[in-house]
C-alpha cells in the first residue's frame, strides 16, 4: 500500500474507507493448525459463524460452506463449538507458511 504524504490525507484524522481492513489478511498469523470443514456432518447451526472472532467462516446462499483461510487464525473456537457428534469441523495440522511479501 502506498503511503500518503501529509497533503494527501483527509483533513482531521479520518479514515474514509469503511471496512478496508479486509486487506489485512489475518490468516497469515496461523501457525500449525487450521480447521477443515466436513460438509456431510454439518447441520447448519451457524455456531462456527457465531463464534469465529476473525470473520473467517464462509456463508454462501444462507449456508455455511467452509472457511476463508485468508482470515482464519486457527484459534479452534469453531471446531470446539461445532455441536455435531461426528464433527463437521476438525482442526488439522498445517505447514507453517512463509508469509508472502506484498500480501499485507
Amino acid at each position: 500500500m502506498k503511503k500518503e504524504t501529509w497533503t494527501e490525507l483527509a483533513i482531521g484524522a479520518l479514515n474514509l474507507q469503511a471496512g478496508n481492513s479486509v486487506s489485512n489478511l489475518t490468516g497469515t498469523w496461523r501457525s500449525g493448525r487450521k480447521p477443515e470443514f466436513i460438509e456431510d456432518n454439518c447441520i447448519q447451526c451457524f455456531f462456527c459463524w457465531l463464534y469465529c472472532p476473525h470473520f473467517a467462516v464462509r456463508v454462501e446462499e444462507g449456508k455455511v460452506t467452509g472457511f476463508n483461510y485468508d482470515y482464519c487464525t486457527g484459534c479452534g473456537l469453531c471446531a470446539e463449538e461445532c455441536p455435531t457428534k461426528e464433527k463437521a469441523i476438525v482442526m488439522v495440522k498445517e505447514e507453517t507458511k512463509i508469509i508472502e511479501e506484498g500480501k499485507k
Binding site: S21, S23, T26, Y71, C75
Partner: peptide, 13 residues
C-alpha cells in the same frame, strides 16, 4: 469486518 487485529480467540468480536 474481517482484518481487525484482535488476538486469536478474542471475545470482543
Amino acid at each position: 469486518v474481517a482484518g481487525h487485529g484482535m488476538c486469536l480467540g478474542c471475545g470482543i468480536p
